[in-house]
Deep mutational scan, measured.
Amino acid sequence: MGFKLLSKLLVYLTASIMAIASPLAFSVDSSGEYPTVSEIPVGEVRLYQIADGVWSHIATQSFDGAVYPSNGLIVRDGDELLLIDTAWGAKNTAALLAEIEKQIGLPVTRAVSTHFHDDRVGGVDVLRAAGVATYASPSTRRLAEVEGNEIPTHSLEGLSSSGDAVRFGPVELFYPGAAHSTDNLIVYVPSASVLYGGCAIYELSRTSAGNVADADLAEWPTSIERIQQHYPEAQFVIPGHGLPGGLDLLKHTTNVVKAHTNRSVVE
């Protein structure tokens, strides 16, 4: 069995187990497998329904001669939608809004960016022009300005110390501490036991640490421990890039980060 097929099978099995364990909360999309990078042309966006009122959005972007996937989250909030992270750029984010209108038909009224990198804030200006209120932590807003990236308009308070959590509509926002970046936030959907790890969490097929220019490698494993301790009931975990899975993604990420750190020390 090929690795790609095995990865998709694991996603399907995880979703099936969740649907059985929580039949009222989960209505997993039966329309197909989780979209992969090879299936999404740059400039297009796919939506994948995880649970009743919960979707991931998947886009792709060219970077350094390669094409990478990027995940975000959409959560229903009454007759409105909360968006977590842009679709990595203005063109993708405009396509995301169009796809949401086509498939869901509810307005996106608020959006949260989970850290300051372009795959999370690139497209904020498109959201703002569409009347979406954009939010991020003060740290993310400051770092985005320093980096020359787009800056969300509103500040999220109460997320300055490791372990801080605040309720934001249908989700809980959690600051686990520094990891992929010093400002990275985690998003949890309690009604569906869905954990969105953003770039602080890796997919299972990833074996290298990737972009760690703004990471705190020493603190990252401790931050992941905080996530595990705060959300032990999480059933569906979405990484910032690639295929979702279960809580095993947290341990896998820790292993990859520690291996990278150990290699760096040896070198």
Rank of each mutant, 00 (worst) to 15 (best):
246 G>F: 06
252 H>I: 08
256 V>C: 13
167 R>M: 04
138 P>I: 15
170 P>A: 05
70 S>N: 06
17 I>Y: 09
147 E>F: 03
70 S>K: 03
116 F>K: 12
168 F>N: 03
21 A>S: 06
192 A>P: 14
106 L>I: 05
145 E>S: 07
197 G>L: 04
30 S>H: 09
58 I>Y: 07
87 A>I: 01
172 E>S: 14
207 T>K: 12
56 S>H: 06
81 L>G: 08
152 P>M: 13
104 I>Q: 14
218 A>I: 03
34 Y>L: 11
29 D>P: 08
185 L>E: 00
186 I>Y: 02
98 A>V: 04
119 D>E: 01
242 G>N: 03
94 A>Q: 08
76 R>D: 14
75 V>T: 12
20 I>R: 10
242 G>P: 01
119 D>K: 00
56 S>P: 06
245 G>H: 15
89 G>Q: 12
239 P>F: 01
237 V>T: 08
203 E>L: 00
212 V>T: 10
196 Y>E: 00
36 T>V: 11
191 S>V: 05
255 N>P: 08
127 L>M: 06
206 R>V: 09
189 V>Q: 06
152 P>K: 11
241 H>W: 01
73 L>Y: 00
138 P>R: 11
212 V>M: 14
67 V>K: 14
173 L>I: 03
188 Y>K: 02
129 A>L: 14
62 S>M: 14
221 P>F: 13
116 F>P: 02
265 V>P: 14
261 T>W: 10
160 S>N: 03
190 P>I: 14
183 D>T: 00
165 A>I: 12
119 D>C: 01
197 G>W: 00
207 T>N: 15
239 P>Q: 01
255 N>S: 09
68 Y>P: 04
172 E>A: 14
244 P>D: 15
81 L>M: 07
216 D>K: 12
6 L>Q: 03
196 Y>G: 09
31 S>K: 14
2 G>R: 03
78 G>C: 08
3 F>W: 12
172 E>Q: 09
200 A>L: 05
69 P>W: 05
35 P>I: 04
242 G>F: 02
184 N>G: 11
95 A>E: 07
253 T>G: 01
178 A>R: 06
63 F>L: 09
222 T>V: 11
80 E>C: 12
30 S>I: 03
71 N>D: 06
219 E>Q: 03
19 A>I: 12
17 I>R: 04
8 K>W: 05
182 T>V: 05
